[in-house]
Structures are given as C-alpha cells and as structure tokens.
C-alpha cells in the first residue's frame, strides 16, 4: 500500500474515532479490501479468506483504542489480521472442518457465494434474541439506529447498547464452537 493510501485511511480512522459513522464505514470498507487481498494470498484449504476478513474487522472494532492516532494505520491493521489468521489456522489444526477430498470437490464445483456458511453466522446464533434482532436489523436489513428502534419498539439508547454488546459478544465467540 502506498503512503498516500495509508494517510487517507488513517485520516478516516481518526475522524471515525471521534464518533463519525460515515467515516468509519468508509474506513472499514477500505480496510476490508486491503485485508481481503492479503488473506487470499495466505489462507489454506478449509479456511475461507472472507472469514478472516470478517474476524479481523470485528477485532479492529473492539480493539480500535490500541491504535496510536499519530502513527501509520497499515502496520496496525496487518498485525491484527496476522494475529487472527494464526488463530484461525490453530483452530483449523485442532478441529479440521473439512478433509482434503472435500476441498478438492468444492474447488471443482466452485460453490456459489450465497451458499457459503460463514463463521459469523454461527457467532450470531449465540447472541440473546434481543441482541440478535438489533444486530440483524442494522446489518442484514440495513436499518439505521432510529429505524431499528422504531421497528423493534425500543429507544435508541437501548438499541445502541444492544448493538455494542452484541458485536462485542460476536467478536469474542467468532470461530469458537
């Protein structure tokens, strides 16, 4: 990544850390692209690179206070991605989810995107019903905080609290059975 990209990403992140949701979304999308390219070059059979991208984004979110605002952002992002990849490889080594034959079949068949069963779905299932409905409303259904509050008949603060706790719990349980 060039220095200009890093300083743009760092600028977005700094603004995001002040609570700017739009800048944070832009920062996370830029980050996801970076990590996706990085993960595709490093994952092995049986690991979906997109799982690594999602787990890294969650870790970035819950550990964002560990970034030094005056420093570059890319080394920090890649350090988190590396930590999560190593963790995933370790889990994979302990509980292999697929055997080699199955992987070969899958490569041959080229499964469609929509059929993929991502780790995050399993983590989402472990949330309380209240947290899950808030997280789903804002992510999959694309609602804003206030729209989610109206549709779930909650006040906005309660929605924010449930979202925060839900995401923290997902980050903690990601990839753990």
């Amino acid at each position: 990544m060039s220095g200009a990209d890093d300083s743009e990403l760092a600028r977005l992140f700094r603004v995001a850390l002040e609570g700017d949701e739009r800048a944070y979304g832009d920062f996370l999308r830029g980050t996801a692209d970076l990590i996706r390219g990085w993960a595709h070059r490093r994952t092995v059979a049986g690991l979906d690179p997109e799982d690594i991208v999602q787990e890294t984004l969650l870790a970035i979110h819950v550990k964002r206070h560990t970034w030094r605002r005056d420093g570059p952002v890319a080394p920090w992002l890649y350090a988190i991605a590396r930590h999560k990849l190593v963790d995933a490889l370790r889990r994979q080594g302990r509980h292999p989810r697929v055997d080699i034959g199955e992987v070969e079949d899958r490569i041959a068949a080229e499964e469609p995107e929509a059929a993929r069963d991502w780790e995050i779905g399993r983590a989402l299932e472990t949330l309380t019903p209240g947290q899950r409905s808030v997280v789903t409303a804002i992510s999959v259904e694309g609602r804003t905080i206030s729209e989610a509050a109206r549709s779930l008949d909650m006040n906005e603060t309660a929605v924010r609290v449930a979202l925060h706790r839900g995401l923290t719990a997902i980050a903690k349980r990601f990839g753990r059975d």
Binding site: A16, L17, G19, D20, E21, R22, Y24, G25, L28, R29, A32, E50, V53, Q54, L57, L58, H61, R64, H65, W118, I120, G121, L124, V135, I138, S139, V140, G142, T144, I145, R160, L163, H164, L167
Partner: peptide, 17 residues
C-alpha cells in the same frame, strides 16, 4: 452475514468507544 452488512453494524457502533 455478508461483510458489507457487518460493516454497517460496526459503523453504527462508532460512538461507543
């Protein structure tokens, strides 16, 4: 959940640091 959907949820949680 798609990654873009996850990002929407994370972005909505920007204020609680």
């Amino acid at each position: 959940m798609e990654t873009d959907d996850l990002i929407k949820a994370l972005a909505a949680d920007a204020r609680r640091s």
